[in-house]
Every structure is written in C-alpha cells, then in structure tokens.
C-alpha cells in the first residue's frame, strides 16, 4: 500500500513520517531537520537529533549593507511548540 493511499487528511502525512527524518520550516526563517518521535493536532512535536538552521539578515552599521547570516546548531532532543510551524516535509523521500 503506497503512502498516498493512506492519506485522507493532511495530518496523515505527518503520521506517515513518524520515526523518519523530517524538514520543518518555521517562522522567523528557521529550519529544523530531525527525527519525528511524536506530534499532536497543534503540530507540537518531539524531535530527536535535530539540526536547526537560522537565517538572519544582518545590517552593517557603517555601510548599511544587508547580508544573510546562517547559524546552525545541533540539539539532541527537542519539544517544539506547534504554533511556529509553517511547513513539514519528509526530506529523504524528495530525492
């Protein structure tokens, strides 16, 4: 049975991604990649082995030049509040 045949509502797509690596796009230009251990209807999630990517626009005070500064950090286990979530995607299935 293919994954798409099981999907009747959007949250089924998340359920199909349990215990898999997922990509989560968050507000404030942040991305999380990690293993999805649990979720609920608010998109609160528990993620393991997470890598967070933060993109910030930095303005140089002298030249007023804008550059994008990318910061990455690793987090072993994480509870994520769902209201910051924009998009969830299983990244490994894309390639």
């Amino acid at each position: 049975m293919s994954v798409s045949s099981v999907i009747e509502q959007p949250l089924d797509l998340i359920r199909a991604s349990l215990d898999e690596r997922v990509l989560i796009k968050m507000k404030a230009d942040r991305e999380l990649r990690g293993t999805l251990h649990a979720y609920d209807q608010h998109l609160n999630m528990v993620l393991g082995n997470v890598e967070e990517t933060i993109n910030e626009i930095v303005v140089n005070d002298n030249t007023n030049e804008q550059t994008v500064k990318t910061t990455k950090r690793k987090i072993g286990m994480l509870f994520l509040r769902g209201d910051g979530v924009i998009l969830v995607s299983p990244p490994l299935r894309t390639k």
Binding site: G82, L87, V88, S89, P90, P91, R93, T94
Partner: peptide, 25 residues
C-alpha cells in the same frame, strides 16, 4: 492544513526548493 505532492517552493517567483510531500499548517 494542506497536504501537497510534488511541491515546489517559490520566493519572488523564483524556484527555491522542492519537496516530495509537504504539510502546510
């Protein structure tokens, strides 16, 4: 909430990335 297949992300009309499946809150 929306589930999409063969999703492509566009910012300012430029394709930035693509996902196989995507859930949009």
């Amino acid at each position: 909430n929306i589930a999409l297949e063969q999703t492509e992300e566009y910012i300012n009309g430029i394709r930035v990335s693509s996902f196989g499946d995507a859930f949009v809150r």
